[in-house]
């Protein structure tokens, strides 16, 4: 695979209330086009930035730990490859297994920032405590497919990408946000009837619930797991409207 001379700008800084307030540090390294951003971060840690903080676990898009912003877009570091960055193809879900036919001696530059709308534990590591609290508020703790048919909401890996992409999560701290509301709908659809539907509906139908959504659909665009939280939010809203108008749910489950 081709080697790329990669210039990485990293927004660094100690624990703080938001990504803002850090400073950008620039590093240059030679990276294989097949490397993921996790490989890049490890190389930085092994070389010029031994104290660099970031989060990761599984390396294969299941754990939802390594989400960050790559040139302003929410990405899983494990799915994003150097070749993809060099080819300018960040719109694709993953760069793995693709040959971008980079020229010999290719160069690329990329800016890495922690997720937006999350407190920062340090450098690129976001603090998920508030986000997990919102997931708890809608009783999102579903066990995937308890022998029942699974729906795509169960693909949510709670990586926080949608929360970072949403402009309203940034400004209304109480707004539940895309992933918790998508999982609230999933909870309502859960055939095993785990958790309290009344609590989920109450959480969704309050000023900081579905009514704060303004159809930006950046959540859906940012989701690395194909959950489509935007559509889930609209369905949840339609459900609340039908209930209020007294329409029967019909044969829907």
């Amino acid at each position: 695979m081709a080697e790329v001379e990669l210039t990485v700008r990293v927004l660094r800084g100690p624990a703080r209330a938001s990504a803002a307030g850090g400073r950008y540090e620039t590093y240059t390294l030679r990276a294989d086009a097949g490397w993921s951003l996790l490989d890049v971060l490890e190389a930085l840690q092994a070389g010029p930035a031994p104290d660099l903080m970031y989060r990761h676990s599984c390396h294969h898009a299941s754990c939802g730990t390594c989400a960050l912003r790559v040139d302003g877009r929410e990405r899983l570091a494990c799915l994003t490859t150097v070749g993809q960055i060099a080819a300018g193809r960040l719109g694709e879900r993953t760069g793995h297994g693709k040959d971008y036919r980079l020229p010999r001696g290719a160069r690329a530059a990329v800016t890495l920032e922690p997720l937006r709308s999350f407190p920062v534990l340090g450098d690129l590591a976001a603090d998920f405590a508030e986000f997990f609290g919102k997931l708890d508020a809608v009783e999102a703790d579903l066990v995937a497919a308890r022998g029942e048919e699974a729906t795509h909401f169960e693909h949510c890996i709670t990586c926080g990408a949608c929360m970072s992409a949403c402009p309203i999560v940034a400004s209304d701290l109480e707004y539940l946000g895309p992933a918790p509301l998508a999982l609230a709908l999933r909870g309502l659809q859960d055939p095993t009837k785990t958790g309290s539907d009344a609590r989920r509906l109450a959480a969704a139908d309050q000023p900081h619930g579905v009514w704060r959504c303004h159809h930006v659909f950046e959540c859906t665009a940012a989701c690395p797991a194909g959950v489509d939280p935007g559509q889930a939010l609209m369905e949840l809203r339609a459900r609340l409207v039908r209930r209020r108008l007294g329409w029967r749910e019909g044969a829907r489950r």
Binding site: D205, P207, W211, R237, R243, R244
Partner: peptide, 13 residues
């Protein structure tokens, strides 16, 4: 703000 369903009407209107 408290009453349930108030926001539904606000949005529909």
């Amino acid at each position: 703000m408290g009453e349930r369903g108030y926001s539904v009407w606000a949005w529909l209107l």
